[in-house]
Deep mutational scan, measured.
Amino acid sequence: DEVRLHVNGHTIEFRGIDEEIFKILEEAAKRGADEEELRRLAEKLLR
């Protein structure tokens, strides 16, 4: 299960996240989070 999030012209792939987590990451990206911040956030949410 892989999703792709487009951030500042880059595509970031995440594996094993559900739609709810994806929406949180998408919102963070809209607020200016970079790839590293998004990955840290995803790790926290998946715990």
Score class of each variant (00 low, 15 high):
residue 1 D to N: 11
residue 1 D to P: 08
residue 1 D to G: 13
residue 1 D to S: 13
residue 2 E to W: 14
residue 2 E to M: 13
residue 2 E to K: 12
residue 2 E to N: 11
residue 2 E to C: 14
residue 2 E to F: 15
residue 2 E to H: 12
residue 3 V to I: 12
residue 3 V to C: 11
residue 3 V to S: 07
residue 3 V to W: 15
residue 3 V to H: 15
residue 4 R to P: 04
residue 4 R to T: 09
residue 4 R to G: 04
residue 4 R to D: 02
residue 4 R to C: 04
residue 4 R to K: 11
residue 4 R to F: 10
residue 5 L to G: 01
residue 5 L to K: 01
residue 5 L to F: 03
residue 5 L to D: 02
residue 5 L to M: 06
residue 5 L to I: 14
residue 6 H to Y: 04
residue 6 H to R: 08
residue 6 H to M: 08
residue 6 H to K: 10
residue 6 H to W: 02
residue 6 H to F: 03
residue 6 H to A: 06
residue 6 H to E: 13
residue 7 V to N: 02
residue 7 V to H: 03
residue 7 V to D: 01
residue 7 V to F: 06
residue 7 V to L: 07
residue 7 V to T: 03
residue 7 V to K: 01
residue 7 V to Q: 02
residue 8 N to G: 07
residue 8 N to F: 02
residue 8 N to S: 04
residue 8 N to W: 01
residue 8 N to D: 07
residue 8 N to A: 05
residue 9 G to N: 04
residue 9 G to T: 02
residue 9 G to E: 03
residue 9 G to A: 02
residue 9 G to S: 03
residue 9 G to K: 02
residue 9 G to Q: 02
residue 10 H to Q: 11
residue 10 H to M: 13
residue 10 H to S: 09
residue 10 H to C: 05
residue 10 H to F: 09
residue 10 H to D: 05
residue 10 H to Y: 04
residue 10 H to E: 09
residue 11 T to R: 03
residue 11 T to N: 06
residue 11 T to C: 07
residue 11 T to H: 07
residue 12 I to H: 01
residue 12 I to W: 01
residue 12 I to D: 02
residue 12 I to E: 03
residue 12 I to T: 01
residue 12 I to Y: 04
residue 12 I to P: 01
residue 13 E to T: 14
residue 13 E to W: 08
residue 13 E to F: 12
residue 13 E to I: 15
residue 13 E to C: 15
residue 13 E to N: 05
residue 14 F to A: 02
residue 14 F to C: 03
residue 14 F to M: 04
residue 14 F to W: 03
residue 14 F to I: 07
residue 14 F to E: 01
residue 14 F to Y: 04
residue 15 R to S: 11
residue 15 R to N: 10
residue 15 R to I: 13
residue 15 R to E: 06
residue 15 R to Q: 10
residue 15 R to F: 13
residue 15 R to D: 07
residue 15 R to H: 13
residue 16 G to C: 07
residue 16 G to N: 07
residue 16 G to K: 02
residue 16 G to Q: 05
residue 16 G to P: 03
residue 16 G to D: 08
residue 16 G to I: 04
residue 16 G to E: 05
residue 17 I to K: 03
residue 17 I to G: 03
residue 17 I to M: 06
residue 17 I to A: 04
residue 17 I to S: 04
residue 17 I to L: 08
residue 18 D to F: 03
residue 18 D to I: 04
residue 18 D to A: 07
residue 18 D to V: 05
residue 18 D to H: 06
residue 19 E to I: 12
residue 19 E to Y: 13
residue 19 E to T: 11
residue 19 E to F: 14
residue 19 E to R: 11
residue 19 E to C: 10
residue 19 E to H: 13
residue 20 E to Y: 15
residue 20 E to K: 14
residue 20 E to Q: 13
residue 20 E to M: 13
residue 20 E to P: 05
residue 20 E to I: 13
residue 20 E to T: 13
residue 20 E to G: 11
residue 20 E to S: 12
residue 21 I to K: 08
residue 21 I to Q: 15
residue 21 I to N: 12
residue 21 I to G: 12
residue 21 I to E: 05
residue 21 I to M: 15
residue 21 I to H: 07
residue 22 F to W: 06
residue 22 F to G: 05
residue 22 F to R: 05
residue 22 F to I: 08
residue 22 F to A: 06
residue 22 F to E: 02
residue 22 F to D: 01
residue 23 K to P: 02
residue 23 K to W: 09
residue 23 K to M: 08
residue 23 K to C: 03
residue 23 K to V: 07
residue 23 K to F: 08
residue 24 I to H: 08
residue 24 I to G: 01
residue 24 I to L: 12
residue 24 I to D: 02
residue 25 L to I: 06
residue 25 L to T: 00
residue 25 L to V: 04
residue 25 L to S: 00
residue 25 L to Q: 00
residue 25 L to E: 00
residue 25 L to C: 01
residue 25 L to A: 00
residue 26 E to D: 06
residue 26 E to H: 09
residue 26 E to A: 11
residue 26 E to Q: 14
residue 26 E to L: 14
residue 26 E to I: 13
residue 26 E to W: 14
residue 27 E to H: 12
residue 27 E to M: 14
residue 27 E to V: 10
residue 27 E to W: 15
residue 27 E to T: 12
residue 27 E to A: 12
residue 27 E to F: 15
residue 28 A to P: 00
residue 28 A to F: 14
residue 28 A to C: 04
residue 28 A to E: 07
residue 28 A to D: 00
residue 28 A to H: 11
residue 28 A to K: 05
residue 28 A to R: 07
residue 29 A to G: 05
residue 29 A to H: 06
residue 29 A to D: 00
residue 29 A to N: 04
residue 30 K to N: 09
residue 30 K to Q: 09
residue 30 K to E: 07
residue 31 R to K: 09
residue 31 R to A: 11
residue 31 R to Y: 13
residue 31 R to P: 00
residue 31 R to L: 13
residue 31 R to G: 09
residue 31 R to M: 12
residue 32 G to D: 02
residue 32 G to Q: 01
residue 32 G to S: 02
residue 32 G to P: 00
residue 32 G to Y: 03
residue 32 G to K: 01
residue 32 G to M: 04
residue 33 A to M: 12
residue 33 A to I: 09
residue 33 A to F: 12
residue 34 D to R: 08
residue 34 D to E: 11
residue 34 D to F: 08
residue 35 E to Q: 07
residue 35 E to M: 09
residue 35 E to G: 07
residue 35 E to P: 08
residue 35 E to F: 13
residue 35 E to D: 05
residue 35 E to R: 04
residue 36 E to D: 12
residue 37 E to V: 10
residue 37 E to A: 09
residue 37 E to P: 01
residue 37 E to C: 11
residue 37 E to D: 09
residue 37 E to K: 09
residue 38 L to W: 03
residue 38 L to M: 03
residue 38 L to C: 02
residue 38 L to H: 00
residue 38 L to P: 00
residue 38 L to N: 00
residue 38 L to S: 00
residue 38 L to V: 09
residue 39 R to N: 05
residue 39 R to D: 01
residue 39 R to Q: 05
residue 39 R to C: 06
residue 40 R to P: 00
residue 40 R to K: 11
residue 40 R to D: 08
residue 40 R to S: 12
residue 40 R to N: 10
residue 40 R to I: 10
residue 40 R to L: 11
residue 40 R to C: 05
residue 40 R to M: 11
residue 41 L to G: 00
residue 41 L to Y: 07
residue 41 L to K: 01
residue 41 L to H: 01
residue 41 L to F: 06
residue 41 L to P: 00
residue 41 L to N: 00
residue 41 L to V: 05
residue 41 L to D: 00
residue 41 L to Q: 02
residue 42 A to R: 01
residue 42 A to H: 07
residue 42 A to Y: 14
residue 42 A to E: 02
residue 42 A to T: 03
residue 43 E to D: 08
residue 43 E to Q: 15
residue 43 E to C: 15
residue 43 E to N: 13
residue 44 K to V: 11
residue 44 K to T: 10
residue 44 K to L: 13
residue 44 K to E: 08
residue 44 K to P: 00
residue 44 K to F: 15
residue 44 K to H: 12
residue 44 K to C: 10
residue 44 K to W: 15
residue 45 L to D: 00
residue 45 L to R: 02
residue 45 L to P: 01
residue 45 L to N: 01
residue 45 L to F: 07
residue 45 L to Q: 02
residue 46 L to T: 10
residue 46 L to G: 04
residue 46 L to E: 03
residue 46 L to D: 02
residue 46 L to Y: 06
residue 46 L to R: 12
residue 47 R to P: 04
residue 47 R to K: 10
residue 47 R to D: 08
residue 47 R to I: 10
residue 47 R to H: 09
residue 47 R to E: 09
residue 47 R to S: 10
residue 47 R to L: 10
